[in-house]
Amino acid sequence: ERGNVVDPVVLRSPNELLSEAALEAVRASRFTPGQQRGRPVKVRFAVPVTFRLR
């Protein structure tokens, strides 16, 4: 309701270390809350996280 991430879950990952890094990145994110009838509401959605090796 406030744009904070609550209870993030990794659905698929090639490695546990990447899962932890993805969870940290998602927890640090802030989002615009969804709205229903003009009021902020909780929304569930998937955020794909892509890692690139250089």
Score class of each variant (00 low, 15 high):
residue 14 P to Q: 09
residue 11 L to H: 15
residue 37 R to G: 03
residue 16 E to S: 12
residue 35 Q to A: 07
residue 22 A to I: 09
residue 10 V to C: 08
residue 45 F to P: 02
residue 23 L to W: 00
residue 4 N to S: 13
residue 7 D to F: 14
residue 37 R to Y: 10
residue 46 A to G: 04
residue 26 V to H: 04
residue 25 A to R: 10
residue 34 G to F: 01
residue 14 P to H: 05
residue 54 R to S: 03
residue 32 T to Y: 02
residue 19 S to Q: 08
residue 17 L to E: 15
residue 15 N to V: 01
residue 19 S to N: 04
residue 12 R to K: 15
residue 44 R to C: 05
residue 18 L to R: 13
residue 15 N to H: 15
residue 26 V to M: 02
residue 28 A to I: 01
residue 44 R to T: 11
residue 50 T to E: 13
residue 19 S to D: 12
residue 5 V to A: 08
residue 10 V to R: 08
residue 9 V to E: 14
residue 31 F to Y: 15
residue 42 K to F: 00
residue 4 N to D: 15
residue 22 A to P: 02
residue 46 A to V: 14
residue 40 P to I: 00
residue 24 E to H: 10
residue 18 L to V: 05
residue 48 P to I: 06
residue 41 V to Y: 06
residue 39 R to L: 13
residue 38 G to S: 04
residue 54 R to M: 04
residue 46 A to D: 15
residue 22 A to M: 09
residue 14 P to W: 05
residue 3 G to S: 11
residue 9 V to I: 14
residue 18 L to E: 10
residue 5 V to W: 08
residue 31 F to R: 10
residue 38 G to I: 03
residue 7 D to A: 13
residue 44 R to Y: 01
residue 47 V to S: 05
residue 21 A to K: 12
residue 2 R to I: 02
residue 50 T to H: 11
residue 47 V to I: 13
residue 5 V to F: 06
residue 43 V to W: 00
residue 7 D to H: 14
residue 10 V to L: 07
residue 8 P to E: 07
residue 49 V to D: 01
residue 2 R to M: 08
residue 30 R to E: 13
residue 4 N to C: 04
residue 14 P to V: 06
residue 8 P to G: 04
residue 21 A to F: 05
residue 23 L to I: 07
residue 34 G to Y: 02
residue 23 L to P: 00
residue 31 F to L: 05
residue 25 A to M: 12
residue 30 R to I: 00
residue 43 V to H: 05
residue 13 S to H: 07
residue 6 V to L: 12
residue 27 R to Y: 08
residue 8 P to T: 06
residue 51 F to I: 01
residue 33 P to C: 05
residue 13 S to C: 12
residue 15 N to E: 13
